[in-house]
Design a protein around this nucleic acid. Sequence first.
RNA 1: GCGGAAGUGGCGGAAUUGGUAGACGCGCUGGACUUAGGAUCCAGUGGAGCAAUCCGUGGGGGUUCGAGUCCCCCCUUUCGCACCA
Length: 820
Amino acid sequence: MDNSATRNDPLAPPVIAYDPTAIERKWQRIWQERGTNHTDLHRAQRPFYALMMFPYPSAEGLHVGNLFAFTGNDIYGRFQRLMGHNVFEPLGYDAFGIHSENYALKVGKHPMDLIPKNIANFQRQLESAGLMVDWRYRLSTTDPNYYKWTQWLFLQLLKRGLAYKKQAAVNWCPDCKTVLANEQVIAGLCERSRTPVEQRLLEQWFFRISDYAPRLLENLDHIDWSETTKTAQRNWIGRSEGAELEFETEAPGGKESDIRVFTTRPDTIYGATYLVLAPEHPMVDALTGGREKKSVDEYREKTKRQDLVARKTSTEKSGVFTGSYAINPATEKKIPIWISDYVLMEYGTGAIMGVPGHDQRDFEFATKFELPIVRVVCGEREDANTPLREAFTECESGTLVNSGVFDGFTVESGKKAIVELLARGGAAKPVVHYRLHDWCISRQRYWGPPIPIIYCDKCGTVPVPEKDLPVLLPFIEDFKPDDSGVSPLARHEEWYRVECPKCGGTGRRETDVSDTFLDSAWYFLRYPSVGRDDVPFDPAITKKWLPVNSYIGGNEHAVLHLLYSRFITMVLHDEGHLAFEEPFTRFRAHGHIIREGAKMSKTQGNIVNPDEYIETWGADAFRSYLMFLGPYEQGGDFRDQSISGTRRFLDRLFASVQTMSADGAPDPTVMRKLHQTIRKVGEDIARLSYNTAVAAMMEYMNTLRKGERTPHRDEVLPLIALVSPFAPHLAEELWEQTGGKGSVFDSAWPSYDPALATEDAVELVVQVNGKVRSRIMVARDVTEEAALLAALQDATVSRFVSGTPRKVVFVPGRLLNIVA
RNA sequence: GCGGAAGUGGCGGAAUUGGUAGACGCGCUGGACUUAGGAUCCAGUGGAGCAAUCCGUGGGGGUUCGAGUCCCCCCUUUCGCACCA
C-alpha cells in the first residue's frame, strides 16, 4: 500500500495505511484474551438468542455460502448487541450423517478420524471470518455427550407412543445402499447419488409426526417467519378437506366389504362411473374374480417391481379390471372396480371414485379403458349436454347437472348437501387428510447415533434405560454398508449381543442408527446448556434463552429440518419439558450465492475458497462484499471484480479517521446526511437489508469526501459503530485509535436526531400532465398554493402550461402535478 | 401439471405506502499525479438527438393526474413438489 501524499509532499506527515491482515489478527487475539464474544448466560439482563443453522463440516472446508449465511446472522447479532441486548451467538457442527460417511468411504478413511480434522479446519476458517461466536458453547452432534440426549429424545417419544416400528415399503437407494426418507427422494431419484430409487420392505422406526399435522399447520399463523417458508410448510403438510364415501361391493362379508374412498369432490358423485384401488389395497384379493385373477396378479407384480422413477415419469395410465362391481350410492348404478398404480396406498384410503368428467387423471384413465364419462358440473358457458374434451375442473362458478335432486346446486352447496344425505345412511363422513407422512428415522448405516433399543426373545422390544445412555457408537473398521439391508453394526456380535435390561436374558441391540435430521431437530435447545452432562437442557437457562429470538438459515431446510424441529419442540412441550411449543420466534431464509451467473460447483471449478479472498482483501472487506452483492434474503452473484468496491470503501473510512480534524465545527449539511444515514443503516439492518445498508454508508462516505475536504471528527466517529457489524476488526481498531474504551461492541448504536434526519428544504418534483418538467427547492412544509406559484415561475414549467390548470395534484414535500 | 420467487443500463443491484426510474458498487471513458500504474484522486457514464426534447423497468391491454409498483392476458427464467383424489 502506497500513498502519493507522502511522496508528493515530503513535509506531510506519513499516513498509516489500512492493513487488514495485521488488524484482523490483532483483534481476533484480543477478543479471545478479553472474552469479548463471551455471553454471561446466567446474568444476562436482556437475552437475545441469534441462531444460525449449523454446518456439516465437509472435508472441502467452509463454503462461501456458509460464510454468506453466517455473516448475515453475525451482523444481526452484533447489531442487537449494540442495541443493548446480551446476544448469544453459538455455533456447532452437524457432523453425523451420510455426507460424512460417504466421503470417508470415498477417501478410504474412518469418519472418526476424519471428522475431528474437518472440524479443526472449519474452526480455523470460521475464526478468521471474525464471527461473534461464543465458542465455549460449541457442540458437535457426534459427541457422545450430545447424542446421549438424542437417544434420550428417542426414548421420550417412545414413552409417549410417538415412536413405533413397522414393516414398511421404504425407498431404497441401491447406490448408497440405504433407506431414504421420502424427502430425500427427488422425482424418483436419490437426492444424493441421483440413482433411481427402489422399493424394499424393511422393519423401520417411525415418529408419529402426522399426529401433529393440524398443530404444525395452525401454528404457522402465529409465528414470524418468511412467508415463502410458511407456504412451503403448508404445502408439505398438505391439508385437504373432503369426505370418505362408502361403496357397497359384491364381495362377501357385508359391511366389511364396502370400499371407502376419499374425495375432495363429493359433489361429483353422480359422475363416479368406476372405482380404482391401489394395487396393494387389502381388498383386491376378495374382489378379484376367477377370470381376472391372472391379469390382476400380473399387474400387481409388475407395479411392485417397478421402480419409482419409471412410475413417476410415465404419464400413460395403466390398470386392470378386478371383475367386481360396486354400487354408486347416489345413482344406485353398478360401476366396475379397477386397480391402478395412479392410486397411492399411502394417501387417503388407498381407493378413489373415478370421476372422469371432472378429474384429469380419471379422464385419461377412462378414455384409455373406454369407461363412461359423465358431466355433472357445468360452468356459465356449458349445459348438461356439452361434451367433455378434457376434465372440467373449474368449480368456483360450477353448477351441478345430471345429479338427480341436486341439479342446480352450486359445487360448494352440493358438497355439503350430498355428504349430509349420504351420511344419514352411514355411507359418508366429512374427513380431513394430510399429505404429511410419519417420519422414518431408521438408517441402515454406521455414522449416526445407535437407536437405544434392545430386542429380547422374552420381553420383546425393550428401551435402553436412561441411566445406560449413551449407547456408544463403536469404532469398527468395516463401516461400509452392503446390500443386505442391515446396518454395518449388525456384523458385530460383540457389540450387539447384550443382556436384556429387563430380564437379564440374551438381548440384541437395535443395529440401525437414527436419521441426521433427529440430531439437528433439537441442537438449539442444547447450546445454552453445553457442558451440562446431567440434563439435555437446563430448565432455568432454557427458560431464559428460549425460544430462539432470531433464526437464520437456508430455505432448503424450509420443510424438513424446520418441521422436525417444530415437531420435537411440541413433543417436549407436551411432555412438560418446555414452556413453549414453537422453537423459533422469528425465522428468515437467506438466499444463495451464485458465481458470475452460474451455480458454484466442484465440477465447474468455480467454487470460492474463502481463505484466499480473506487473505487478499481482508475478512472485513470480504464480509462487507458478501453482504453488499445482493439482497440477503435473495442471494446474489459473486463477482471477483466487485470486491474492490467494498475494500475501497473501508480504505477510505480508514483514511478519513487518519486525516479527520477536531478543529472548528462540523458541516451542517454533512451532519444532516449523517443522521439520515444512521437512521437508514439501523432500519436496513433490522430488516436484513444489508446491501442497502452498505450502500447508505458508501453514500455517506462520498458526501464526507466531496471536494477534497478534511472531514470533521464529529462527522466521522459515528460511522465506526455503523460499520462495526460488517467490518468488526476495522471498527475495533478505529475505535481504539480514536480513544474508545473497551470494545466498540460494548458501546451503543448511535442515535439520530429525527429533526436532523429529515430535510427541511426539499426538492419538489414538478410534473405537467404526469411528466417531470422541473424540480424546485421548497420548504418541506410548503403549501400547495405556494408550491404552485413557485412552480409556475419556472421557465420549463410555464412553457408547458398555458392558461389555468384544470387540476393540480399535490403530494406534500414530494411532488406537484399540474394537469393542463 | 401444481406451488413459490423473479424478469429494471455493459454487469451486480436500488426504488417502505402508486409519486424524481437506474441509489450504491463493478466496468467503461476522459483527466490529474507519476519512470510506470493493475495504486490513488477528480469528472463523466440508460438510449437517441447539436439542442429543445423524445424514448425507456420481458410483451400486449387496462385503471389513474401519475404505474417498475395495482388489474387482465401472454412470454421467459428459476427453485420446490410431482398421479396426494
